[in-house]
Design a protein around this nucleic acid. Sequence first.
DNA 1: GTCATTATGTTATAATATTGCATTTGGCAA
DNA 2: TTGCCAAATGCAATATTATAACATAATGAC
Lengths: 157, 157
Amino acid sequence: MSATAAKRGQKNWPKQVEAVCVRQGLQLTPLRRRVLSILGESAAPLGAYAIIDRLSKIEGKQIAPPTVYRTLEFFAENGFLHKIESRNVFARCEHVGHAHYGALLLCETCGRSEEIEDEALDEFLKRTAARAGFALQPQMLELQGLCKSCAAAARGA
Amino acid sequence: MSATAAKRGQKNWPKQVEAVCVRQGLQLTPLRRRVLSILGESAAPLGAYAIIDRLSKIEGKQIAPPTVYRTLEFFAENGFLHKIESRNVFARCEHVGHAHYGALLLCETCGRSEEIEDEALDEFLKRTAARAGFALQPQMLELQGLCKSCAAAARGA
DNA sequence: GTCATTATGTTATAATATTGCATTTGGCAA
DNA sequence: TTGCCAAATGCAATATTATAACATAATGAC
Ligand SMILES: [Zn+2]
Ligand SMILES: [Zn+2]
Ligand SMILES: [Zn+2]
Ligand SMILES: [Zn+2]
């Protein structure tokens, strides 16, 4: 994805979420809108406490963790957000409303994540796991590496 | 892998670790041996605080977290242990001394983990990520699902 | 033995996340 | 409208996971 496309995705994400909420009768409350906006503006996925801090600034008073964790849970349950378990951060879903076969590509240098959909990957994994008698759940892989620009920078250095 | 083979692996793991330590001149101290034995006897991967509790029982006094975290770090750095980031637990490496291409298959029901080596999987992932301009680090995947026996039990239920 | 290095002990604290319960809000039926 | 229920939020306490900082002890090289 180009940098332009990434920016477009970032800008559109709150609107996409709002559209799905309207369609499905989900309450997009003021609190949820504020958290949506915080997540929407971040270049890289955010941790819960980073969100708590920003929200507290906006509200002008200290917000307690459960407030934010519950909001994040709401977004994750409804497919708007991915929790990245290997880093304890939350990333916008870049395919709101789509089926999810694929992976999150996580850059170790800049912290950004990119989401790819790939049914062939899903199939490959299922077959690989099946050889060991294992039945995989549907899931987003977390793959660690370097994004295009950080890899280029590393080569240049 | 059969249940018998799994049991063999479990029994042999401390000995394999010891052999590698001797070969590489790594100190297998009394503390490390005790932690090795705790990990060697567990059916499923253990969290740091589970290890702290068991070790404290064995030693007859409360062991502090850094003691255990440092021991786990030693095992992980030397390729004897995998930290499972999605669950905050530590699993015996089932291929001590081998190259690592592959995945940890994690059972959501019984908590056990199984390690597979698969160079083709590694290749597939690299190519998939490369299409997005991403350069993957070598890494063990974490794949969530049901192990053979738990999947069978679930079908039977 | 001296010294440097590695390993362990200990205290405190950081970072991440959840429980439980009180209060408020929003939707809806009588 | 009013009363009610369910969903959402506020809030305090606490649980869980992990690290920092510094002191002491053990080990190995010379
Ligand atoms: Zn997604
Ligand atoms: Zn990057
Ligand atoms: Zn391994
Ligand atoms: Zn199982």
